[in-house]
Each structure stands twice: as structure tokens, then as C-alpha cells.
Amino acid sequence: MSTIEQALEFEQTSLKSLSTSDRIKLSRQAKSLILDLNQIYKSKKDQNIMDLMKRLTTIKRKVEKRLKV
């Protein structure tokens, strides 16, 4: 499965009723996907990849915001 497919699948993940450990896993997975997508973006310069990274970053921020409370 390619990184882009993994990221699109990750986007569909439900964020309801997650435990703290689940939130930590999601945050780490999002960070990993964003970094991998960034490497792809550097070579292809595709705007769709940048948009996907922005959406994943938004999800990551929501998860981390809940962790810091």
C-alpha cells in the first residue's frame, strides 16, 4: 500500500471515544505519514499531496489538542 493510500485511509479514521494511548498512536501515525508525504511532495510538487498533508495536520492537531488538556 502506498503512502498516499495509507494517508487517505487514515483520514477516514473515527476520532470518537478514543483512549489516551489510541490518541498517542494516531498522533504518531499522522506525523509519520506527513513526513513521508513531504518527501514525495519534494520530488513531485503536486498540489494534491500538499492538500492531503494539510488535512492530516488538522487531524493531528485535533488529537494533540485533546491530549494536552
Rank of each mutant, 00 (worst) to 15 (best):
F10Y: 10
L26N: 05
R28D: 15
D36G: 00
D51M: 04
L52R: 01
D36K: 04
R66N: 12
N38V: 04
S32R: 02
A30N: 01
L8F: 11
Q29M: 14
S32A: 14
T20A: 13
K68C: 05
Q12R: 14
K25I: 11
A7N: 03
Q29C: 11
T57G: 13
F10M: 07
M53V: 10
D22I: 07
M50E: 10
T20M: 13
S27Q: 10
T58P: 00
A30S: 15
Q12P: 03
I34Q: 01
I59G: 00
F10K: 05
V63C: 02
D22H: 11
K25V: 09
Q12W: 04
I34P: 00
S14F: 08
R66H: 12
S32H: 03
Y41V: 09
D22L: 09
L15E: 12
Y41Q: 10
T13Q: 09
T20Q: 15
T3P: 00
F10T: 02
E64W: 02
Y41H: 15
Q12H: 08
R28C: 11
S21W: 05
T20D: 14
N38H: 10
S19T: 15
L52Y: 03
I40L: 15
V69P: 07
K25P: 01
K45P: 00
R23L: 10
K65P: 05
L67W: 06
K42W: 10
L26M: 13
A7I: 07
I49R: 01
L56M: 05
